[in-house]
Amino acid sequence: MKKLPVNCPSCEKSLVVSQLSCSNCETVISGSYSLPILLQLSSEDQDFIFEFILSSGSLKKIAIKLGKSYPTVRNKLDDIIERISQLQKS
């Protein structure tokens, strides 16, 4: 699966969506749309959030599934929360 780039490889600023297209009728929409905050997170963080939802928000279940300790998993969640807060402010 192709990895969605979220930062500019040249200046590292956040990228925006400038074009969307329909794969069925080939309609193309141009504009400037900001990426949703969740998509601006790293793929590793997105995978973690995905696991978090699938585990009904149980960090203990995620810890068992990922083979990590509970504080390691909780720290990961805290780091993601902090990253989201930073993205909301920017």
Partner: peptide, 10 residues
């Protein structure tokens, strides 16, 4: 070991 093992094991 604290990154991997559960508190019960530790």
């Amino acid at each position: 070991p604290f990154e991997k093992y559960s508190e019960k094991t530790l």
